[in-house]
Design a protein around this nucleic acid. Structure first.
Length: 497
RNA sequence: GGUCGCGUGGCCGAGUGGCUAGGCACAGGUCUGCAAAACCUCCUACAGCGGUUCGACUCCGCUCGCGACCUCCA
């Protein structure tokens, strides 16, 4: 069906993608924990896998894209004291877990929408799948790979490792882990330090709790993904994605749980995006260096020199390969903003251009070059989703487009076929696959008419050589964020910042 | 400490055993009443030291520097 190759984190190699069920792809991506606001670092996986989702569909696959919402666990709202959760408080003063989760889920959806990320096919919540998780845990206990202690259930990693290749995904060696794992609370309940919780007993003040065969508690962090992915995608599915920081312990644990529950490994291809760094350090809660999406879009953050449009951020992320780290800086974002504006304008110009209709190109060399650039886009995407190279090729073609409009390139330089290919390539890759869209809102007719009037008045002034008036109109509009451009053919167009 | 990864021109960033990615910035030019935009030109880098090779930025080794994971983490 395709020549798609992708880097499989499990084998650390690029592999040809073969769908388990021909024509269909099951894609699971670890979604957000909705106990706080999404930040720039979170944007990366969702944009990365939005590209994967879009490209797989472009290749003709029917994709079921499942991305969970982690809304169960040991939650605290950002900035609030833990005491808030203590049930002694009056009902309305107390933070309701559902309230918190709902607030941040909405905020997350708002962010994804602004980034023009497609919605997943299914967005299951951990709290909506407690039964499935309990069932899976019971199954693992029955098979002898988990044990209960004081109302909590732990997975027996040491036993698992006797038979299965524990640590392969993350490159861990069990013996090393046994020595280096730190002492944490609850360790004394575990048989071995490396064991992880499938179910946690809830202390009295804990606000999220469900009844289970082991008493009141809440599910461990890893089990939800195993339970939900197998429910919606089957015991084995094609692609599982997430951030590199989830390799261990999260994904390693998922493999272990699912392998015991189902008798075989759950995932055929693991994909992991790299981190966004800031001043060379990973952006993350623990480093206290996050820029929230709301801050990013408004520019209200000490580290931000200006606001950055979601499309600029998306473009900036796609200019780098998803497996490389990407360092945040105002300079980099500003460069992306200018770059994207230019490329998007070329795209808009291209849609308006008319081809003279010649079937033989006036410039055979350029014609061939453009065809190559266009065809390479597919090769680049097939090679582990190399969006950076796709964008580079689109930039190669921007001068051709602008040149045709500006007259530096002959209108018939390209054949009609090649011109159509060029138009299609921009639409397909820039819009459909990379998911870029205009930064500015669609103009209203009223504004358009007002500007047409001003442009007409300026044109009159210019023919009278009354440049004081014409420049005043242009400058005042510029102050208001409307930029006029005198085109070669004498017409005037405008862009709104 | 263990495991893994990275180090590219002013900045951001692809990528490859020989065939100058791309973007942003800078500089010069064309066009324009001026400007902006656009177009053309300029800017040839790959941490250091060895090795393999006809040839390495690309492979191997060492050194230095940086980071990620090992704990919630996208």
């Amino acid at each position: 069906m395709s020549d798609l190759h992708l880097h499989n984190s499990y084998t650390r190699q690029k592999e040809k993608f073969e769908a388990l069920v021909p024509g269909h792809v099951g894609l699971y991506v670890c979604g957000p924990t909705v106990s706080g606001e999404s930040h720039l670092g979170h944007a990366r996986p969702y944009i990365t896998f939005d590209i994967v989702y879009r490209y797989l569909r472009h290749l003709g696959y029917r994709v079921r894209y499942v991305r969970n919402i982690t809304d169960a666990g040991h939650f605290e709202e950002e900035g609030r004291e833990a005491e808030d959760k203590v049930s002694k408080k009056a009902q309305l003063e107390r933070m309701e877990p559902m309230e918190l989760v709902h607030k941040y889920t909405n905020l997350y959806h708002w962010g994804m929408h602004r980034f023009n990320c497609e919605e997943p096919s299914i967005e299951p919540t951990a709290t909506g799948h407690i039964i499935e998780q309990i069932n899976m845990i019971q199954d693992i206990i029955a098979k002898g790979y988990a044990y209960e202690v004081n109302g909590s259930v732990y997975f027996d990693v040491k036993k698992y490792a006797e038979t299965y290749p524990y640590g392969k995904l993350s490159g861990r060696v069990l013996d090393d882990l046994l020595e280096t794992t730190r002492d944490l609370e609850g360790q004394d309940e575990k048989r071995n330090k490396v064991d992880f919780a499938l179910w946690k007993n809830a202390p009295p003040e804990h606000i999220m709790r469900w009844t289970s065969p082991w008493g009141e508690g809440f599910p461990g962090w890893h089990i939800e993904c195993s339970a939900m992915s197998s429910k919606y995608l089957g015991e084995t599915f094609d692609i599982h994605g997430g951030g590199m920081d989830l390799l261990f312990p999260h994904h390693e644990s998922e493999i272990a749980q699912s392998t015991i529950a189902h008798g075989h490994a759950p995932v055929r291809y693991w994909m992991h995006n790299n981190m966004i760094t800031i001043n060379g350090k990973k952006m993350g809660k623990s480093y206290n260096n996050v820029i929230k999406l709301t801050e990013l879009f408004t520019g209200e953050h000490p580290m931000l020199e200006q606001a950055y449009h979601p499309m600029v951020v998306r473009f900036y992320i796609l200019q780098t390969h998803y497996r490389s780290t990407l360092d945040f800086s105002n300079e980099a974002l500003q460069a992306s903003e200018r770059a994207f504006r230019r490329l998007w304008e070329a795209y808009e110009v291209l849609q308006e251009l008319q081809h003279p209709g010649n079937t033989v190109p006036a410039d055979g060399e350029l014609d061939g070059q453009v065809r190559t650039w266009c065809h390479e886009c597919k090769e680049f995407m097939d090679d582990d989703f190399n969006t950076a190279k796709v964008i580079a090729n689109l930039f190669e073609m921007a001068p051709v487009i602008n040149g045709i409009k500006g007259g530096q390139v002959a209108a018939g330089a390209l054949s009609a076929d090649t011109f159509a290919l060029l138009q299609d390539t921009f639409k397909t890759y820039l819009v459909d696959i990379l998911g870029m869209q205009a930064m500015q809102e669609q103009q209203t007719d009223k504004l358009d008419k007002v500007l047409a009037l001003l442009i007409e008045m300026r044109k009159d002034a210019r023919t009278r050589k009354d440049f004081a008036t014409s420049d005043q109109i242009r400058n005042k509009l510029a102050e208001a964020g409307v930029l006029l451009k005198d085109e070669k053919d004498g017409t005037v167009s405008y862009t709104i910042e």
